Simulated assay, not measured.
Amino acid sequence: MQKSQNQSWLIKIAIFTLIIIAFSLDSRAQTAQKWPEKKAWDWYNKQPWYCGFNYIPAYAINYTAMWDKTTFDPKAIDRELALAEQSGMNSLRAVLQYAVYEDDPAYFLKTLDTFMALCYKHHIKFIPALFDDCSFGIKSDPVVGKQPEPLKGWYAWAWSPSPGHSMVTDSTTYPKLEKYVRDIINHHKNDERILFWDLYNEPTNGGLGSATFPLLKKVIVWARSINPDQPLSIGMFDQNPRLNEIIINNSDIITFHDYGNKETVTRAVEKFQKLNRPLINTEWMNRPFGSTVSEILPIFYQYKIGCNLWGLVNGKTQTDLPWGHRPGDPPQDLWQHDLYHGDFKPYKPSEIDTIKEYIDRSEKKEYIELHKHQ
Rank of each mutant, 00 (worst) to 15 (best):
M1W: 14
S8V: 07
W9H: 13
L10W: 08
I13D: 12
I15Y: 06
F16I: 12
L18S: 12
A22G: 14
A22Y: 13
S24D: 04
S24T: 14
D26S: 12
A29M: 08
P36H: 06
K38W: 04
K39E: 13
A40H: 04
D42Q: 05
Y44R: 11
K46A: 06
P57C: 11
A58M: 06
Y59A: 01
A60R: 04
I61A: 09
N62Q: 04
Y63H: 15
T64P: 05
F72Q: 07
K75G: 00
A76C: 00
E80L: 05
A82I: 02
V95H: 07
L96K: 12
Y101C: 04
E102P: 00
D103S: 15
Y107D: 05
F108V: 02
K110G: 02
T111V: 14
L112M: 14
F115N: 11
L118S: 09
K121Q: 15
I124R: 06
K125D: 08
F126E: 12
I127L: 12
C134N: 13
C134H: 00
S135P: 00
G137A: 06
K139W: 08
K139M: 07
P150M: 08
P150A: 10
K152L: 13
A156G: 08
A158R: 09
W159R: 12
S162P: 11
G164F: 08
H165I: 10
D170F: 11
T172E: 13
P175H: 09
K176A: 13
L177P: 09
K179Q: 14
Y180A: 12
V181F: 13
V181Q: 12
N186S: 14
K189P: 10
N190T: 15
L195H: 06
W197T: 07
Y200G: 02
E202V: 04
A211C: 10
A211D: 15
A211N: 15
P214V: 10
K218I: 00
I220G: 11
L232E: 03
E245T: 13
D252G: 02
I253Q: 08
I254Y: 06
F256T: 05
H257S: 05
G260S: 03
K262L: 03
E263Q: 05
T264Q: 08
K274C: 01
K274S: 02
R277P: 03
I280W: 04
T282G: 03
W284E: 01
M285I: 06
P298E: 02
I299V: 05
F300W: 01
F300V: 01
C307F: 00
L309C: 02
V313Q: 05
N314H: 03
K316N: 03
T317L: 03
W323N: 11
R326W: 02
D329A: 07
P331A: 15
Q332W: 04
D333S: 09
H337F: 13
L339K: 01
H341W: 10
G342H: 10
D343M: 05
P349G: 07
I355Q: 01
D360Y: 12
R361V: 00
K364S: 10
Y367E: 14
L370T: 10
H373Y: 05
H373L: 11
